[in-house]
Design a protein around this nucleic acid. Sequence first.
RNA 1: CGGGGUGUAGCGCAGCUGGUAGCGCGCUUGGUUCGGGACCAAGAGGCCCGGAGUUCAAAUCUCCGCACUCCGACCA
Length: 478
Amino acid sequence: MAKEKKVEQITDMEVDFAQWYTDICRKAELVEYASVKGFTILRPYGYAIWENMQQIMDAAFKKTGHVNVAMPVLIPESLLKKEGELVSGFAPECAWVTMGGSEELEERLAFRPTSETMFCDHWSRVLHSYRELPMLYNQWCSVIRWEKTTRPFLRSREFWWQEGHTIHETAEEAMAETEQQLNCYADFYENVLAIPVVKGRKTEKEKFAGAEATYTVECMMKDHKTLQGATSHYFGDKFSRAYGVTFAGRDNTLQYPFQTSWGSTTRMIGAVIMAHGDNNGLVLPPKIAPIQVIVLPVAQHKPGVLEAAEGLRARLEKAGLRVRVDDSDNSMGWKCAQYEMKGVPLRVEIGPRDIEAGQCVLVRRNDGEKTVVRLEELESAAAEQLEKVQQGLYEKARINLEEHIFAAQSVEEAKALQAEHGGFIKTMWCGDQACELRMKEEAGMSSRCIPFEQERLSEVCACCGRPAKHMIYWGVAY
RNA sequence: CGGGGUGUAGCGCAGCUGGUAGCGCGCUUGGUUCGGGACCAAGAGGCCCGGAGUUCAAAUCUCCGCACUCCGACCA
C-alpha cells in the first residue's frame, strides 16, 4: 500500500495528460502565470533549462559563422505591411502600441511577432556589395503573438526564441543555409534533447506566411500527439524585392539577395516535458539539466556524512558537472521525490554504511536503475550513468515514434488509425489543398510534413484517388 | 472566438437552504527523527477574483466583468 503522497502531487498522465503537463510546469517550478492573460514568467529553474539550450545552440550557430544582433521590439505598421503574405499571416495576432506617453501616435507600432521586416529594412540600408554577403544574423529575444488559447511553453502570447535571418548572393547558397539550419535543429533535438525527429517540408497551407518553402522537424509526444519542433524557411528574393534590399553584383548589376530565416523557441521545453516526463515528474536530458547530479546525504546528522557528501560534490564539479547537495533536514523519501519531480538525471546517495564500505549509490532518473560504485571511480561512473540516461531517453523516444507511424489508404482508415493509436498517419497525397482540408475536416488531422524520406505506399491520393505526388504525414498537433 | 469547468491562506479544498471564515499540506520557532514522500508542541498567515445590485445583514442570492483551465477553430 503506497503511502499518501504529501508533496506536490501530480496527476497521472494516463488519467489526464493535459493536467499532468500543467502540473509538471507548475510543480517543477518551471513557469508561473503572469498578471496579463497568456503571459508567463520563466522561473529560475525553467530559465536555467532555457539558458542551457541557448548556450549549446548559440555555439552551434557561431560555429557556422552566424553572429548575434539585437533588433527593436516595435515595428511601424507601414514597414510590416510591405510584404503582403506576411501581413495577412501575422496581422490577426499582432499587439499594437498606439500611445506614446499621453500622445496618440501618428502611426501605430506593432510588437514584433517575428523580425523579417526589420532585418530587411536594416539590410536595405547597409548592404551595398556582393562582397558583404552572406550576412548571417541571429537574435535571441522574445516575440508577441496575441494567441487565443494559451498553455505554458506550447502557446503563450509572449515566448522566447532565437530567430536566424540570413541573406545570400545566390539562391543555391540560401537553400543550402536553409537545409544546414534545419539539420542543426534536428541534431540538437536528437543529440541534446534526446528526441528523434521527422524532417520534411511543410505544405503550402502550413508553411510560414511569406516563405517560398518551410522545412520542419516534427516530434512525437507521449500522448501520441505531434509537435512542430523548429522550422527553417527559404524566402527566395521575395522579401528583398518587397523591402528594396539590393547589392551590386560581381557583374556590377543591381541584384536582390536570397534570404532565409529559421527559429526555435521555449516550446522545446514543452517538447522535453512531453517526450520524456513520467508520473513522478519531469525527466531532463543531462545536457540541458540545470542540476545534473543531486547528492543526497543519508543520515546526515551522523559524523562525517555531510563532509563526505560535500566531497563528492566537489569532485563531480571539478569533473565539469552541475551538482548540488541537499543537506536540508527533509526526509530521504521527500528528497528523492523532490528531485525526481524536478527531473534531475542522476542521484548520488551516500550514508554511513557507504562510507564504511568505500562506496556510494548512483540512481538514474529515467529508469530508476541503481548502481553501487567505488568512491574512487565516482567521476567516470557518474559520466557513464549520465550517458546511459541520455541514451535511454533517446531509445525510448525513438520507439515511441517508430511505433506510432501508421500507413493508411483512405481518409476513413486514417481517421480510424488516429482514433485508435494517435501518432503520425502516413498516406499518399495528390498535393491538392482540398484533400488537406478534407483530412482536417473528417479526420481531425492537419498535415505535419512531407518527409524527406519518401515511401511509395500506393499510386493514388488517399483522399481523392487521383495520382499521388508525395507521401505525407498527418497528425494531431500541439 | 465558440462550448464546458473553476476562482475562499503559498498549495489542495470545505463552507454556498444568507448572520463578515475553517480543514489538510506547506511556512516560522523549539524538540525528537532520518537507507523512499517522519512526528510532537507552539505560532504566523484571508478586502472569500473584481464591480454593481437585492437585503437589517452577502463567501453564500442576482446581473456584468476578469482570470485560469479543458475541448474545438487559429497559430511556434
